[in-house]
Design a protein around this nucleic acid. Structure first.
Lengths: 355, 355
DNA sequence: TTTAGCACTCGAAGGGTTAGAGTGCTAAAT
DNA sequence: ATTTAGCACTCTAACCCTTCGAGTGCTAAA
């Protein structure tokens, strides 16, 4: 990557700053007068020409001002950005809100999406915390009607899965409770493989049930992000570059389908990373539908226990500083939420590493 | 409401049909040639003038064709519409999909939203089935860490609520299980009031827990529609009347905030109702943000047991026939889903009407 | 009661002009 | 060796004007 002079960096920063605010190509004279630069517009013009040469700026047409290129944004994000933290009062306020929601995971995930969207003025997405490898904590079986039974699976980490299953023959609640207790005793703390290995010596009812447990846990393991909570879509549709264009709808379809989101969320190694936070600019050549968008992604949680993804989606000219600092703050906050309210027995208590 | 001649009804129907397809004001000559009418354009003009007089059509400007007014749509929906059922193959296909999803309520609610959006070519919304009055089926308490306990509440009807609660002092899993069993025995099938009434003779742990149960059930009762599942937003944003206008964003904000949706879903008595299905045209004077929108709403489930709402949101010129028939079909289908897979003990087994 | 004929209206579309913001280049100034 | 003033040039956005044509309402004949 080309080394710029200090002044060039300064001017690039100003152009990006101005363009993010106005969405209008920025000219040399405007820049000088708006920011009281003590150089002439001609000097700025020369520097801009250099930056254009380097591929960091471009002109929409000959007699227009400059606009940052994707490369320009990338340079800015990776080398120039000075992301200030959120103000202390704001942080305290947000923390307080989360504290009040601490009892319900879904609620605080939703809150996270809402805060993220509001603070970054863009669309936000948050996935609930999800263990990399589901470990069983508790099985519950509840008779409903005839051969149908509601199975509730509580995983270590707090995730709860429920499913209605149909047994071969009707069973009383009492038998079901005993079965659930037995299986809970037997498989507490076990992951998919361990259950599968130890599932030999079982009577028929237990076997029947554990089959469903395995199925559900397989599903849990394969889900990277079961549900994705979105918020702030209107923030992004309000941006001038998307009003009335095809792009806005395409982007919305992306968010609606969610498969691409999972794809992206799954891909943790990305081009530009700032302190654990990934910045995806203009689809990075891979996701064509995202060409007019940027995504700031973070993750939260504890790798061994449960992790989730959170991010901000906005136009190319989004405020990266604000987005990054918000994502960073919420990332640590949500990590705290996971460890504070969902932490369970230490994982060393179970498993093969019990030395 | 004014009585129209058969020919006027016919022409109104044609205008609405054509406008629904093209989104362009429809003129007399176009109408005659496009539908091979055996009358002259002048005759059509006269009838159109009459319909305009009655307030069922209007002209965007003097020398333009006619466009249906909200009143026009209302007349059409309440007196003229002939909503054909979905084709048999389609119905079977959809039913089959639902059958495969029958184990997971969230999944089939999501599927319903998806099918509804696809079939009606508009945005759709579906709320999960929700009992009008929560009745307890089962309490489960699971120790997590220290004084924190995961409480899982299973309601009759299949709804499951979970919450982390903090007790006054640490309690073993065994004690918790006993407590849960005791409370389940004592309050099974009881609603909020009954629990409150019978909650006198309890020891301290039970009392502590039952307080949280009451809180959760109160919350369950007050929720009309906890979550609203949306789909097909892009269908609606693609409509020409919304490209680039403020309206689209306003509408999206409505859907995002969901409070208005609950408001609407809660208000079951509406102006135009066709076979249990409510049609809300242009906000009906009450919801200003919805002026450029129409909503076709239905409900499903069994009033005593659990009910939900489903609906379609589209532009004023949406295809009401298609929307209504889709909503109607899904309404019965989802009702079946509720009774088939979630039905519990008959409600007469419990309560004051046990004669 | 229907229809042919006609004058009239008004928005959409096309074309031409203008204004001004912005550029790059050159030559003078620092 | 930079920086800056000056200037010719470019190109879009905005405006105005005209034209075109679809659609109307009215009148009079069928």
């Amino acid at each position: 990557m080309i080394e710029l002079t200090e002044r060039q960096k300064f001017i690039l920063t100003l152009v990006i700053h101005d363009y993010t605010r106005t969405a209008l190509p920025v000219g040399s004279q405007v820049l000088v007068s708006r920011y009281n630069l003590d150089m002439s517009s001609a000097t700025v013009r020369n520097e801009m020409a250099a930056l254009t040469e380097y591929g960091l700026l471009r002109q929409p047409h000959t007699s227009a001002g400059r606009v940052p290129t994707e490369e320009g944004y990338r340079y800015f994000v990776s080398r120039l950005i000075r992301s200030s933290d959120l103000p202390d009062t704001t942080r305290r306020m947000i923390s307080h809100q989360f504290y009040q929601m601490r009892h319900d995971v879904e609620q605080w995930v939703r809150l996270a999406a809402s805060v993220l969207a509001y603070q970054s003025r863009a669309a936000s997405l948050v996935t609930p915390p999800h263990p990399e490898k589901a470990r069983l904590k508790h099985i519950e079986l509840i008779a409903t009607r005839g051969r149908q039974v509601l199975m509730v699976l509580v995983m270590i980490g707090g995730e709860v899965r429920q499913r209605i299953l149909t047994l071969n023959e009707p069973v009383t609640q009492e038998l079901l409770s005993q079965c659930a207790d037995r299986l809970t005793q037997l498989f507490q703390g076990a992951d998919l493989d361990e259950i599968r290995a130890r599932a030999a010596q079982l009577n028929s009812l237990d076997e029947d049930v554990i089959g469903w447990v395995l199925q559900d846990m397989t599903q849990a393991d394969s889900e990277i992000a079961g549900e994705v909570f979105l918020d702030g879509l209107t923030n992004v549709l309000a941006e001038p570059e998307f009003t009335g264009s095809e792009d806005a709808r395409r982007a919305l379809r992306i968010l609606e389908e969610r498969s691409l989101l999972q794809d992206i969320a799954a891909r943790s190694v990305m081009s530009n990373s700032v302190g654990g936070i990934q910045v995806l600019i203009g689809g990075e050549g891979t996701w064509d539908e995202l060409r007019p968008w940027s995504i700031v992604l973070g993750s939260y949680g504890t790798p061994g226990l449960a992790t989730g993804t959170l991010g901000v989606l906005g136009p190319l000219r989004m405020s990266y500083g604000r987005a990054i600092s918000t994502v960073r703050f919420l990332s640590t906050l949500l990590s705290d939420m996971v460890t504070e309210t969902l932490l369970d027995e230490p994982t060393t208590q179970k498993g093969e590493d019990s030395l």
